[in-house]
Amino acid sequence: MNELIHDCQKNHKFQQREHRKFLALMLFIQVTRFKCRGFIFGLATNHCMCDGLGAIGFVSSWGETAPGLPLCVTPSLDRSILKARDHTKIEFPHHEFTKIENVSDTTNLYQDKVRDKSCLDPEKLVQLKQMALKDKALGKCTTFQALSAFVWRARCKALKLRPEQQNRLLFTVDGWPRLNPPLSKFFFGNGIVLMNSLCIASELLDMPFSFTVVLVQKAVSMVTYSYIRSAVEYFEAKIYPPSLSSTLLITTWSKLSLLLFFSPSYLL
């Protein structure tokens, strides 16, 4: 295996410099060939270029052209629908971009990282949704809503946040069908929308589990065409990225047709 691994030198400054170069790339492709004639294809794109759906379309189209076949569809590159209007109109508050004061001083908690993962199989996901509906505070919920609420609460408890600590859940919502007109299914670009739920730690831990699920549901329900336009123009006017202080960021790939290599279970 040593013959397949690139020696990037054990020099800290060199690694930092190369890492910065990598982050600045729009598209990075690496092909590793094995002596058995097999190979591994690795691809990384800057999120400014496209979202998950756009990336899947790009890889699929590339796979078609590799053996010399013509493209089945022509990618749509028209991003004018996502352009800010001439007269900026920010209609909604966008707490997904605001910085939260870290009154719990959690910086030291990230010095010694413990990496672990848990697999939630379909049976456990059903149990989680049953927990959310147990007190009959809500009529229904999706798997994503229940799972996001559960992880958000668990993280808050694990970090031992102070009761008054503002705590944010940040997640992406598919904006493709919500635009007017909707984005073409062959669109290559970003059609996702950042949404958030905001709550202090004491409410998150002391209130019933259904309370947290409702917070997620309310955030999802806010994603309308007007909200997307407002977010685009807020970002255009402020020109700074979302703050991740006191924030848990969750994303789901369950709608991506990765063919694939992943089961319907969720890996955390």
Results as ranks from 00 to 15, higher is better:
S245N: 13
L249S: 10
I228R: 04
S243I: 02
T247E: 02
S243E: 05
S246D: 15
P241T: 15
R229M: 13
I228K: 04
Y227G: 05
T224Q: 03
A237Q: 13
A231R: 00
Y240V: 14
R229D: 13
P242E: 01
L248H: 04
F235S: 14
I250H: 00
S246P: 03
Y225R: 09
L244E: 07
V232R: 01
Y240K: 15
P242I: 06
Y234H: 10
E236T: 09
Y234G: 04
V223L: 11
K238F: 14
F235E: 12
T251M: 09
T247R: 04
I239S: 15
V223M: 00
Y240T: 15
Y227H: 09
S230C: 00
A231H: 03
S245I: 06
A231I: 07
A237G: 07
I228P: 01
I228T: 03
T247P: 03
T224A: 02
S245E: 15
E233D: 09
Y234Q: 05
Y225D: 14
Y227Q: 09
K255Y: 09
S243K: 08
T252Y: 06
V232N: 04
I228D: 01
F235C: 13
L244Y: 12
S245Y: 10
L248D: 00
L249R: 04
F235M: 12
S254W: 02
I250W: 00
I239R: 14
A237M: 14
F235A: 12
M222E: 14
S246A: 12
S230I: 02
V223T: 09
I250C: 01
F235Y: 12
E233S: 11
T251C: 10
A237D: 11
S245P: 03
L248W: 07
K255M: 10
T251P: 00
T224L: 07
S230E: 02
W253N: 01
W253R: 01
L248N: 01
S254V: 08
I250D: 05
